[in-house]
Amino acid sequence: MKVAALQMVSTPDVAQNLAAARELLRQAQGAGAELAALPEYFCAMGLRDTDKLGYMEAIGRGPIQEFLAQSARELGLWIVGGTLPLEAGDAQHVRNATLVFSPAGECVTRYDKIHLFRYDNGRERYDEAQVIAAGQAPVHVDMTDRSGTSWRLGLSICYDLRFPELYRAHAQQGCDLLLVPSAFTHTTGEAHWEVLLRARAIENQAYVLAPAQGGRHPNGRHTWGHSMLVDPWGQVLGVRDQGPGLVLGELERGRLAQVRAQLPALQHRIL
């Protein structure tokens, strides 16, 4: 199955971002992708963290969700909808949520980001918990590609990448593809992004598809980019360093079986 990671440099303008996402989705579909994954905050990166409250939608309603459903239906794609802010039950917080849409335009599952990023090196400060309410549980979803092959997708978001227990939970549920839509900072991405993605692939013997924000944003933030597809042996199959664009690659059921058979590490797990 051909998949695509879509890299963006999102702005505070939702309409502008949706138009950019639609063009990348169209390119992915034209290149033969069956599944396309958007990055974290694909719909908007505001000038302030609290701007997320203004973009917030109720589940099942709103222009961002309508865009994802319509795009999936019109392009005949499975779409992993990056993240969008959904209601969290109070006026001061949102859920940072990934929605997955089938080619019929149906939202088939939702995952709320569990681990909330906090970082302070004296120059850069981030604290997602100020406006984001954490999710509580891992989520996976099954899909069938055009050949009739079934794939199990394990969902995660950005900072989740640093917590291997989440991905081991996905491996225990038989996930073949781990999704990591992200907006890593340039500082943390340069230091840790690739090594963490490859580690999650190797230790769980699964493909990893990581669409990212990659560039300088109007809010002054510089995101690392380097959207990537990694195979279950830890080999990087495709990467885009900075700027909008696609990373395309093939998932091969035979490759998964080969890696898992020749080094059955998941079967050797004790703890």
Rank of each mutant, 00 (worst) to 15 (best):
G62S: 05
R125N: 11
G105A: 14
T188W: 11
I132A: 14
F117L: 15
K52G: 00
I114F: 02
L68W: 11
G174N: 06
V108C: 08
H115G: 07
L196G: 02
Q70A: 06
P12H: 04
R255E: 12
R253I: 04
P85V: 00
L53E: 00
A199M: 10
H217C: 07
D90Y: 04
F42D: 02
G148D: 02
Q70Y: 00
Y111Q: 05
W224S: 12
L84N: 01
E124V: 06
K113Q: 15
L251E: 12
N121V: 08
P103C: 07
R152N: 10
Y159S: 13
L161C: 12
Q16N: 09
C158A: 05
L35M: 11
G215E: 09
T223I: 00
Q262P: 02
A58T: 11
F42A: 13
A191S: 02
Y126L: 15
G135M: 09
V80L: 08
L229V: 03
I157M: 05
E40T: 03
L248C: 03
E57N: 00
P138R: 12
C175W: 03
Q242I: 06
G220E: 01
A133V: 08
V94R: 03
Q7E: 04
Q16E: 11
W193T: 11
T109C: 05
L271E: 13
A261E: 14
T50F: 07
P244Q: 13
L177C: 09
S156L: 12
P164Q: 06
F163V: 15
M143I: 11
L161R: 15
L25H: 01
A129D: 15
L266F: 03
A265S: 05
Y111A: 04
N204R: 08
F67M: 01
H268E: 13
W193D: 15
I64S: 01
L38W: 02
D145G: 00
D176I: 01
H170R: 07
V195Q: 10
R269L: 11
L246G: 00
A44Q: 12
D231S: 10
R168C: 03
Q205M: 09
S182A: 15
G135N: 07
H192E: 15
L38P: 08
A20P: 08
L35Y: 09
V239W: 05
A33S: 15
G135I: 11
H140K: 11
N121M: 07
A212P: 10
G254S: 12
R118A: 07
W233Q: 15
T144A: 10
G89N: 14
R123N: 10
A265Y: 05
H222C: 09
A21V: 05
G30S: 10
